[in-house]
Computed example of a mutant assay.
Amino acid sequence: MGAPATGDEAWMAAAARLALRARPLCRPNPGVGALLLSEGERPRVMARGWTRESGRPHAEAIALEAFAGGGAKGMTLHVTLEPCAHASKRGPACCDVVADAAPARVVIGQRDPDPRTAGEGIARLERAGIDVALLDDAASAASLADYLTLRRLGRPRVTLKLALSLDGCIALADGTSQWITGDEARAHVHAMRARHDAILVGGGTWRADRPRLDVRLRGLEERSPQRLVLTRGVKPDGVTVVNEPADIADLDGVLSVYVEGGAGAASAFLEADLVDELHLYRAPIVIGDGLRALGSLGLDGPDGLEHAHGRWRRSYCCQLGSDSFTAYQRVR
């Protein structure tokens, strides 16, 4: 296996950004990005591809087909995930497609943990005489976070969203909560919904508010996620019921879940340590005697505070109108 070359990380970061176009329409397959580069000291992008709706064609096949019908001799292919090594009724193994195209190099962002591939894709490329470099870079891992979580932990990746006042409330004492944040923050939430396979609220929130749980951004309405309700009560019409947070592992074809509330559902997922990413929208208002964002997380006792430290790492922050947004990643 060859070593990474100068510039490989930058090209892979570009491929990872391209991969974001695939999610979530490509489910149940991972969203992968691929770039085919020309030869020489100053390579140019000759073709690009990302996983298409319902998972086929794959990114590599699209990029290779876009350039000269699949031939790529002497070129370099950057792909965020190891090309698959298993054929299916929907198409051939991507490692064989790439081998037939005969690029000089293939640079891979992440090894595929799927046991049907898991290094075999790389091995076949090398047996075909292709130089392969495995980067294991952060950009590819971030773009594949949903898929990698499902493969490694056996469940969808969970993002918890909380919209808060400065003093940590999600509603007034009487339950009034529309609207804590402004237009820009609400539009950002809808964009996050469009990137997830399923959206979940607690039974109390569903019964009290009957939220639509859809995407209301022009052009993205068809990306409204599957609706889930966390409850042990009567199954509401038009939604899927989840009795316990751990039951998300049984959801068919779901790689990512966006938990929006309320306090009971948020606390249940945090206490079960099933939250991988935390999104905090904070409005510049003070409510005082309002409803708190979270209930008990099981941290009581002399060592509770110690266990609360070191769990979260800030990964991104920005201003959305008068509101602030901060994302935190769970440290595992």
Rank of each mutant, 00 (worst) to 15 (best):
P236W: 00
A283P: 09
R207N: 05
L135E: 05
R27E: 10
A104V: 00
M12P: 01
T326R: 10
D100P: 00
A187Q: 13
R186Y: 04
E222Y: 08
A3F: 09
V45N: 00
L20C: 09
A308E: 12
R157K: 15
V215G: 06
R314L: 11
L77M: 03
L305S: 03
R186T: 05
G119E: 02
Y147C: 14
N29G: 04
F67W: 15
D114L: 02
G7D: 13
S54G: 04
Y281I: 04
R116C: 07
G261K: 01
C84Y: 08
A61L: 08
P225M: 13
L153S: 06
A145F: 07
A104N: 04
P30M: 11
R151I: 06
A10Y: 05
G109K: 06
A198N: 05
D250M: 10
H279R: 00
K235H: 11
A272R: 15
L270Q: 06
D100Y: 03
I122P: 01
D197Y: 10
C94L: 11
A34M: 01
S143N: 04
D209V: 10
R90H: 15
V331C: 11
V98R: 06
V132S: 14
L134G: 06
I62R: 08
L251Y: 05
W179R: 13
G288N: 05
G55N: 05
G310F: 09
F269P: 13
E126G: 09
G71N: 12
R124W: 07
D96L: 12
D146E: 12
M46Q: 07
D323T: 08
L148W: 12
H196Q: 13
D8A: 07
A68W: 02
P103Q: 07
H190V: 09
A13V: 03
S256Q: 07
D136G: 10
C84E: 12
L144A: 01
L164C: 09
G204Q: 07
T205A: 08
G261Q: 13
P24L: 10
A198V: 06
R195N: 11
R207F: 00
G321E: 12
L270V: 00
L150M: 04
E306T: 14
G288T: 01
M192N: 02
G71P: 00
D174H: 12
S267N: 07
A63E: 11
D167A: 11
A118I: 00
S88V: 02
V331N: 10
A19C: 09
P236T: 04
A145W: 10
E222R: 15
I248F: 05
A123K: 10
I130C: 09
H58Y: 02
P115S: 12
L36E: 06
A102S: 14
L251T: 03
L230Q: 07
R21D: 14
L200N: 03
P236F: 02
E65S: 14
C169W: 04
P83C: 03
P43M: 02
D247T: 07
G71Y: 03
L294G: 08
R127Y: 00
G55T: 08
R186D: 09
L36I: 00
A185E: 03
A61K: 09
C169S: 15
C84P: 02
L291A: 05
A99W: 09
L148H: 09
G204H: 12
D146R: 08
V79R: 08
R111I: 11
D167E: 05
A61G: 14
L291K: 14
T117C: 14
G121V: 11
D300W: 09
E120C: 00
E60Y: 06
